[in-house]
């Protein structure tokens, strides 16, 4: 699902080049559920952004995601690819305020495979599955943190993506609530043979994944 070789992202800060992220080699198989660990500042979010096609690497030998070479794609093609094949769950969930739960999920479809009756039915089904059947038309401000997290999760799953990238998806929730939602995400991803890459600092969440990778080890591999 993901093949990375000799990837680096550097930024220019004044006269200096700052390395934000370095990966020597990383390979993640289809349907695999992987926790990405490491200290703050190692570039875990930057790596996710490069895998999502949001950020272009400064140097790279290979960056294949779902058999697609992201380095050869234009920005617009990467946007289209991300919308269609990648679901993202953010640390702050990033729901859009003017839209209710169902519409937030449907936004994922709008910019992904396209909004239609089928995607609407899937959005409703996902929301029902995560226990939000009676919250479909509530605005984000009317939901609890746990409910917001579940809406964000449904939005990531709406396009039946091949890959889900989750950046600290438990946010500031208590472990019990967050853990339940994560278990649900992994369950649905497993059913749909969807690869999950999750950045986390929480050992218990990491333990729920099939494999744990420390980004520091990937740097050494370079």
């Amino acid at each position: 699902m993901i093949e990375i070789e000799q990837l680096a992202k550097t930024y220019r800060r004044g006269d200096q080049l700052v390395t934000a992220c370095t990966v020597g080699h990383l390979s993640i198989g289809r349907g695999e559920q992987v926790a990405l660990l490491g200290q703050s500042g190692l570039g875990k979010t930057t790596l996710l952004n490069m895998i999502a096609g949001i950020v272009r690497p400064s140097q790279v030998r290979k960056l294949l995601v779902a058999d697609q070479d992201l380095t050869a794609m234009s920005e617009s093609a990467r946007d289209r690819f991300r919308g269609r094949h990648v679901g993202i769950v953010f640390q702050t969930f990033n729901l859009l305020m003017p839209f209710d739960s169902l519409e937030n999920v449907m936004l994922g479809a709008l910019f992904g495979q396209g909004s239609n009756q089928h995607t609407r039915e899937r959005a409703e089904e996902l929301l029902r599955r995560v226990g939000l059947a009676d919250r479909m038309h509530h605005l984000p401000g009317e939901l609890s943190v746990g409910q917001v997290q579940r809406v964000a999760m449904c939005r990531a799953l709406i396009n039946e993506p091949q890959l889900i990238l989750a950046d600290e998806p438990l946010g500031n929730q208590d472990r019990k609530t967050g853990g339940e939602v994560l278990r649900l995400l992994l369950e649905i991803a497993g059913e749909e043979d969807c690869t999950v890459v999750m950045v986390t600092h929480d050992p218990e969440s990491a333990a729920m994944m099939q494999r744990q990778i420390d980004l520091a080890d990937l740097r050494q591999a370079s």
Binding site: I54, D79, R80, R82, L96, G108, L110, F111
Partner: peptide, 16 residues
């Protein structure tokens, strides 16, 4: 900017 960035992260193209 944040709202737009979220839509872009969901796959929205610049022209959209």
């Amino acid at each position: 900017r944040r709202e737009i960035a979220i839509m872009r992260s969901l796959g929205a193209r610049r022209h959209q």
